[in-house]
Design a protein around this nucleic acid. Structure first.
Lengths: 199, 199
DNA sequence: ACCTGAACACCGTTCAAGT
DNA sequence: ACCTGAACACCGTTCAAGT
């Protein structure tokens, strides 16, 4: 799996193949079928390991809102560390499986902040889907750079919108306020969703 | 393109190939290279057509909030109409290109409701990324069904969470409140983000 | 138990050749 | 202008054979 992740990170998930992994490990491409049922299972395992990354050490301070922020911030960072792999999280149902610890932590903090279960369920799901949408979009732009120039390339802002001004006047008005800093923009969305968390 | 969409919808985007399209059109698989630079360009065109679907006829009533809801509700429905194609929206930068009309409409309604440009930019992006995250997650579950049973299959709820109760007590508390109705759940998230839209 | 290598049924794309 | 068909360099996966 470590080798597979290395191939994915350096060549991109698109160039990852059983044959490429075999070449990297200097073994026959079919040897992996002893250890994984196939390419899909291997990729699923990689994705799950990324989602689980750091989920066991999520903070629990006296500020539940900050702890929730940190939870999703960390999920974002883990996914962005492997931009070409990130879109494959959609292969797994969200919120279950590898997400257990993370989900439980987020819901626990919402509960701790005095939110009732109905609101907590709603807020939790909105946070998760927002994070996935934002992060996968950003990852795609990053991935484009990786696939062109190899590992370590940099991507531009996720939404540097420059619409044709004459045809879309309203959009042109807000365009300057779409932040260049993707992380700040991401956190602003989290805060919007968490805006009236009790206390 | 119509033929390509038909192949994608019936066989699934995973089974879509130049050779499959050639067989469907009863022509040589390489004939398409006269009309599209390659498979990627063809898929991008399909994705753009889905994103643009209905964007020209978005409502503009005296209730801006309802109009925004309808905008994203419609984007969700268009994407879910082609569940195996939906994840490929990530191939295109969000909010630009095929999104122009849709983005401009949403921002115009936020503006019309009295929101200042900074907040409008933040709310708009949060709505878009939330919608993408929610919809692509739902589409994947639907796609699984399509690929197993062919077109027209039904998927389950996007998040019927049944966590191991002993290990994740907080999550178990909210699980019953995660709605089975995916559309209702989706709209609840939109309303959460739009919660204090002026007027 | 684990690895090898041939084989099968596929891919996207290019290019010379046809009409 | 458009289509064909051979060809190239790839895929994932299976299976009999080895150690």
């Amino acid at each position: 799996m470590a080798a597979a992740m290395q191939v994915v990170d350096t060549q991109g998930a698109g160039a990852f193949s059983m044959r490429a992994l075999g070449a990297f490990l200097e073994c026959d491409p079919t040897a992996m079928y002893r250890h994984f049922t196939g390419k899909n299972a291997l990729l699923d395992a990689l994705v799950d390991s990324v989602v689980r990354e750091g989920a066991a050490t999520l903070p629990e301070t006296d500020d539940p809102r900050a702890d929730i922020r940190e939870n999703f911030r960390q999920l974002r960072r883990s996914l962005l560390a492997h931009p070409t792999l990130a879109p494959l999280v959609l292969r797994r149902p969200p919120g279950v499986g590898a997400y257990w610890e993370r989900s439980d932590h987020a819901v626990a903090q919402l509960h701790r902040a005095g939110m009732d279960p109905v609101d907590a369920a709603n807020v939790y799901q909105t946070l998760l889907f927002y994070t996935l949408g934002h992060t996968l979009s950003e990852a795609r732009q990053l991935a484009r750079a990786v696939e062109r120039e190899g590992a370590g390339a940099e991507g531009g802002p996720v939404a540097a919108v420059r619409p044709p001004e004459d045809r879309h006047p309203d959009l042109s008005d807000v365009a300057p306020h779409l932040r260049d800093d993707n992380e700040a923009q991401f956190l602003a969305g989290l805060d919007l969703i968490l805006r009236d968390l009790p206390r």
